[in-house]
Write a protein that binds this DNA or RNA. Structure first.
Lengths: 192, 192
DNA sequence: AATAATACATACCGGTCTGTATAGTTGCAA
DNA sequence: TTGCAACTATACAGACCGGTATGTATTATT
């Protein structure tokens, strides 16, 4: 149950937003699923927009924590950590609840460039890429910026690929490509 | 003007769907922008869903034609054609009207797996990848299936990356990675 | 026991959505 | 000139949207 109604509503809304889409999820559906009322929802969230942004913020934290914890759990050396990121995402994509990336999807649902949802999505994208850039730098990559961008593209590409064709093993195919790109970058950075 | 009202409505709707999102575009807005009436729209398209599917079909044809023609224009050898695909997309991404991939976006807007929109998006994704696989095979790639999947991921990843941060040159960064992957695949396929 | 905070129940508001009904207008062809 | 088909104009149905108003039940604190 909910010791905290605010969090319970957010948790319920977050699950619905992710699984059904944000615009496809009405306030009434959230209220019904959470077993509460509109009045309570609007007590904690002034508008649906606020709830959406809270959902994205929560998703961002959960995603970053999962990535960082998963990487730390799987590898200790920077180069292995880069590859571990793909293993973490492979696990994510294997879940039956997987419905793509919350930020990519939100970005597609809210087209206007100035929309706060767009900004949140772009911010997450940047943060994630910086994590990869840090790891690439620690691993001694030649051009950690380019490499991190390329790895990020492989991951988001694998996500949308798996979204369209489930159980296609997209993230493992992406990891194979990542392995090549990483090796290339490291071999050039460390001349004999 | 429109010699053909059906096509004129579809063209207008297609532009709005792409630039503003499908769910964000009401029938009234389409009718107003096309300078016609709802009665005429519903004469040619039994429902908004039909119009949406027609839009995706039109977008698929336009996209495939643009890719194939652009590749043919830029290169004659299979390996160069693979790289030319990235040049075609780089041009696409540079347009001020660029708003991401119509199929990735539509897939995000209509979450249900059984939705016809999802099927259309998946179908395009497959077709595009097969084009890449053909080129990879012609180029003599070792594992044309894997390579084509990886290149497709780089492209869709670059698209969503550019969607979140405009003017980031994402497709050129993706092309650099593609170049490495292609070289690797060809060198392994043609042993000395 | 009195008070205050929290949450629930329900009805409602204005607006927008897809889709339809009805009537009027234009242009072209026999 | 008449007739017919395509198109326009406009109003409306019915559902759903986000958001609010009013009032009640429950619980904790004092």
């Amino acid at each position: 149950m909910a010791r905290n109604l605010h969090d319970h509503i957010l948790q319920t809304a977050s699950a619905l937003f992710y699984s059904q889409g944000i615009k496809a999820t009405g306030v009434d559906a959230i209220v019904k699923a959470a077993g509460t009322t509109k009045m309570s929802l609007y007590k904690y969230f002034p508008s649906k927009d606020d709830l959406v942004l809270a959902h994205l913020s929560k998703s961002r934290d959960a995603m970053l924590n999962r990535i960082l914890a998963g990487v730390e759990l799987r590898a200790s050396e920077p180069k292995q950590k880069l590859l571990a990121v793909f293993a973490v995402f492979d696990e994510l994509l294997s879940s039956p609840e997987f419905r793509g990336c919350p930020f990519i999807n939100a970005s597609a649902e809210f087209a206007e460039a100035s929309n706060p949802v767009q900004l949140a999505a772009a911010e997450f994208s940047d943060t994630f890429r910086e994590i990869l850039a840090d790891l690439a730098r620690q691993a001694g990559a030649q051009d950690s910026e380019s490499l991190s961008r390329q790895l990020a593209m492989l991951i988001s590409g694998a996500i949308v690929s798996e979204q369209m064709r489930r159980q296609s093993g997209a993230m493992r195919t992406a990891a194979a490509a990542a392995n090549i790109l990483i090796e290339q970058s490291l071999s050039r950075a460390e001349p004999a």
